[in-house]
């Protein structure tokens, strides 16, 4: 990931900041600049999610992509936040403790790094609540 690309969405990754349409009430994560339902009538504002959510589904990664080899096996899940949006995230913990519908809460972790010389990427992962 390029440095500017990460940095632009940094606050969203660190603090689960997304957006909310004041017109229709929908919440977006990752943040959207425009409401797909209300279009130009939409009124978008920043919104910090509570971080409480539940596991919609998950998978256990054994053959990791480059840069994640040191973490296998790890759990990748779709988590639905209590405000509605769904996001793909790592769940910290043992795969045998995971279940669909499990309540989760956010933690601040290292998401990855660009080799030994590049930037370290931080952000939100989830743990069983």
């Amino acid at each position: 990931m390029s440095v500017p690309r990460f940095w632009r969405k940094q606050i969203a990754r660190y603090n689960l900041v997304g957006t909310h349409c004041k017109q229709c009430g929908e919440y977006f994560y990752p943040p959207r600049n425009m409401c797909p339902s209300c279009r130009r009538e939409g009124e978008i504002e920043d919104f910090k999610f509570s971080g409480q959510g539940e596991v919609v589904t998950y998978t256990v990664i054994h053959a990791a992509a480059e840069g994640f080899e040191g973490q296998t096996p790890y759990v990748l899940a779709i988590v639905q936040l209590e405000e509605g949006p769904r996001l793909t995230t790592q769940i910290v913990g043992d795969a045998k403790d995971m279940s669909i519908g499990m309540k989760v809460s956010p933690v601040f972790r290292k998401l990855g790094q660009s080799g030994d010389r590049g930037m370290i990427y931080y952000g939100t992962k989830f743990v069983p609540a």
């Binding site: 040191g70 973490q71 601040f108 972790r109 290292k110 370290i120 931080y122 992962k125």
Partner: peptide
């Protein structure tokens, strides 16, 4: 520490 924890993540958790 976990594989994805370092002094920065620990500092953030303590500060929060």
């Amino acid at each position: 520490p976990d594989v994805d924890e370092d002094a920065a993540t620990i500092a953030v958790e303590a500060a929060r």
